[in-house]
Write a protein that binds this DNA or RNA. Structure first.
Lengths: 189, 189
DNA sequence: GCAGCTGCCTAATACCTTTAGGCAAGCCGC
DNA sequence: GCGGCTTGCCTAAAGGTATTAGGCAGCTGC
């Protein structure tokens, strides 16, 4: 009987694929074992437990999305950067709904601090350099960006926009326009 | 042996309380049975299955929030209405995180159409009457409002704002200000 | 006060999670 | 090449959740 060659990395990647196919909360140690044609208990040499698997998928997704965003942001500034960042975010969620859902999983503080989440935060701030915002408004604006992107993407993914015209494809650029206008003209305290 | 007096309504309410206490995805038929000191199988006379329970909790939350929002909106218009609506949304999520999470559960189209979700949509549109937006911009704006509220509230609930100053309490009103400004000055197509 | 309905129970199946302990595959030195 | 050791994957087992089938008894209506 040859060995299956499991590693935490391969399991995480397969778990991410599984998440995209069947939904993040259907990602189960058992399903993963089936996918590798291996007994369930075997995975516990590589994963601490089910929660560990989910956390690894979340961290993978954060890294992947941060990489894509960094690529998209290179050489752009202002509204151009804003639109590129937003586009990456949305596209990733549409291509990888399971991974996207994984990203929203609460991480414990230590894990979060060591994750690519901090790159995301830095990139948001980098985008805002194209606008003229001093602290604390910059932080408020970072949170606004995060809220809009995450909120829109998750409502769209949940199908909340499906049953009313117009097509969400039209709404997205208009929201970018609105955000850009808001940032250029941030209301004074 | 006296009967426990279970009904779908009591189960739903208890399920909602359970969700607020331990999180929506920890709401389980078994836990609910324990709470009523009753055997698990007994609940299946009142609930079709676990999914049915979750759906009922979601519908309850949608109703409750719609009621609160309607109260808050009465007699208000413009930014006043916007801030009141936003406040209700956020407060509800903080008071009832489990119910709030339940609301984000995907509903099948028929159920969604019969739910209080339509009241939410109507109220969003009502708020926008205080601003001068024609279709399709009004729909874009409805989606923006939904995205910001949902996005902010769920990021805050997930603790995403916990580890950076300033306090989210300061950010929220500034985001309302920014939204108000955006709506008053919606960028032309 | 009893007949019938129906609410709650027991029993059983199936799946997921997790731990403990065993066997052998494959790499390491010789 | 070969013997030993590590360790990857296995069997076994216990415990939790979901769900269905079928039974008995408590309540309601007459």
């Amino acid at each position: 009987m040859p060995r299956a060659g499991l590693t935490a990395e391969r399991l995480t990647l397969a778990g991410a694929e599984l998440a995209d196919e069947v939904g993040f909360d259907q990602v189960t140690v058992s399903a993963l074992a089936r996918r590798f044609d291996v007994k369930v208990a075997s995975l516990y040499s590589h994963l601490k437990n089910s929660q560990d698997l989910r956390t690894r998928i979340a961290l993978l997704a954060l890294e992947e999305l941060a990489d894509r965003a960094a690529d998209a942001l290179a050489g752009r500034a202002g509204k151009d950067a804003l639109a590129a960042f937003a586009g990456v975010y949305r596209d990733y969620a549409r291509e990888h709904p399971g991974r996207y859902a994984a990203m929203r999983m609460p991480l414990d503080p230590g894990t979060a601090a060591a994750s690519a989440g901090v790159r995301h935060a830095r990139m948001s701030r980098a985008i805002l350099r194209g606008y003229d915002l001093a602290e604390p408004d910059q932080t408020h604006a970072v949170r606004l960006l995060g809220s809009v992107f995450h909120g829109y993407v998750s409502l769209e993914l949940a199908g909340s926009f499906d049953h009313s015209a117009p097509d969400p494809r039209e709404t997205w650029p208009r929201i970018i326009d609105a955000l850009d206008a808001t940032l250029r003209n941030w209301p004074a305290s």
